[in-house]
């Protein structure tokens, strides 16, 4: 087959599509983080996210988040069809800025927690969880 200009255009277009895919996959969780932080810088430390290393059943994965002095904590599962998992807002009577719950994970992925501190800064932590059986049906 001779490489005509038309073919070259088609190859070029598909290369752009392929290159664009991983970028979009990464942006899935980032959009939610940006919406939460309003574009502010996100630091490290001061927040702990506890999740199992291997989850046999993705339908119910126990996680725990804790960030002393946080007013809000956002939890994201970056590999889920919908990355948002939950947002915890702590009131004046919360004894500790910590909570545990059970979440669904579709596949092996990173779980990310972002905390908004009382002074308005943001910190995040992430944990990688291997999922044996995904939890989104389908």
């Amino acid at each position: 087959m001779r490489l005509t200009r038309r073919h070259a255009m088609a190859i070029g277009a598909s290369a752009v599509v392929v290159a664009g895919l991983p970028i979009r996959a990464l942006a899935a969780g980032d959009d939610d983080i940006t919406a939460f932080t309003g574009g502010a810088d996100v630091g490290e430390g001061g927040i702990t996210l506890t999740a199992p290393e291997i989850a046999e059943n993705g339908n119910t994965v126990p996680i725990e988040v804790s960030a002393e002095g946080a007013s809000e904590i956002l939890v994201l599962a970056t590999g889920n069809p919908v990355p948002a998992v939950a947002t915890f807002k702590f009131g004046p009577l919360a004894a500790s800025q910590a909570a545990s719950t059970r979440i669904r994970l579709a596949k092996t992925q990173d779980v990310v927690a972002v905390a908004k501190m009382a002074d308005g800064s943001f910190v995040k932590a992430s944990a990688s969880v291997k999922v044996t059986i995904g939890g989104c049906g389908g």
Partner: peptide, 19 residues
């Protein structure tokens, strides 16, 4: 208020919370 949680579909069946 003690805690106010926004839940998304990624929360498991029979939502459980400890705080």
């Amino acid at each position: 208020n003690v805690i106010d949680v926004t839940l998304e579909p990624a929360i498991s069946t029979n939502p459980f919370f400890e705080f």
